[in-house]
């Protein structure tokens, strides 16, 4: 009878509805003008997307987020895989990672803007750093756990080290790398939003604060909804891709992404 409740996607959807319900009740109960109901907020969404400037801001933000993440993917994954297979590389990179780890990445924004100017480069760079750490960590862990015999089998077939890294180590570590991707894309989003809130020039984060300054409360909440939606969609999309790419793996973990 309640089997449809267990379908994938249904529980989160119900949770979403429950959240909106709670929000509505709380907003009507308090009745503050700075705490609008979800209905009022959703009514501003079409206007928000219809407005050229806002839509362009959102698109530009997402583009920077994806660019930073792609850069992290290209750099951190191979580096993490090499760390897992070479103790020397691990020994060299680990202390650097441990040093960057506690630094608030988005807080680097003002300093990086000194170096790279106020354009996209600085913003993409900060996102790149933020998304790199989880990718590096998970690629490292995944490569470390690759069955040595698998590598030997490939060696006996005549595969050289570079080819082994991409043809054996990468696919073996893929389930773990994909978990890193899922955490990494969320990290990219977090860094994107917070760095824009700090730099206050353009993008989603800036839009969010400008509307707060101008007392456009409905827009503030609408922007929060938009950011939350980007996070939710990115998470679901990556989980989908992960399942598609690692269906062959023996164990199917379904990691809940911890926020950072």
């Amino acid at each position: 009878m309640t089997r449809w409740l267990a379908l994938p996607g249904v529980p989160p959807l119900l949770a979403l509805l429950a959240l909106l319900g709670l929000w509505h009740l709380a907003a009507t109960f308090f009745g503050y003008n700075f705490f609008p109901t979800p209905g009022a907020v959703f009514k501003t969404l079409p206007a928000l997307f219809g407005e050229a400037e806002a839509a362009a801001n959102i698109a530009a933000s997402v583009k920077r987020m994806l660019a930073g993440f792609a850069l992290a993917l290209a750099v951190a994954v191979p580096l993490g895989l090499m760390m897992g297979r070479s103790p020397l590389v691990a020994k060299l990179v680990k202390p650097l990672v441990a040093t960057i780890y506690p630094v608030p990445k988005a807080a680097l924004m003002p300093i990086i803007m000194l170096w790279l100017g106020i354009g996209d480069a600085a913003k993409i760079f900060v996102i790149f750093i933020g998304a790199s750490l989880p990718l590096l960590q998970h690629s490292f862990g995944g490569a470390l756990a690759v069955d040595q015999k698998l590598i030997w089998s490939a060696q006996a077939m005549g595969l050289g080290p570079v080819k082994r890294l991409f043809a054996v180590v990468l696919p073996s570590a893929l389930p773990e790398v994909m978990i890193g991707c899922r955490v990494g894309i969320i990290m990219a989003l977090i860094v994107m939003v917070s760095s824009e809130m700090i730099a206050r020039q353009s993008g989603v984060g800036n839009l969010l604060f400008n509307s707060a300054d101008m007392a456009l409360y409905d827009t503030v909440y609408a922007m929060i909804v938009v950011i939350a939606a980007i996070g939710f969609v990115a998470d679901v999309a990556f989980e989908f891709v992960r399942r598609r790419l690692t269906f062959w793996a023996e164990i199917h973990q379904d990691p809940l992404v911890p926020s950072a």
Binding site: A15, L19, L208, A212, I224, A234
Partner: peptide, 20 residues
């Protein structure tokens, strides 16, 4: 499911609302 929805949301985005 609640955690699944809330965990990937960048909490920092809530900050303006929290300030309000």
């Amino acid at each position: 499911p609640l955690v699944r929805v809330l965990a990937p949301i960048p909490k920092i985005a809530l900050y303006p609302a929290l300030i309000l």
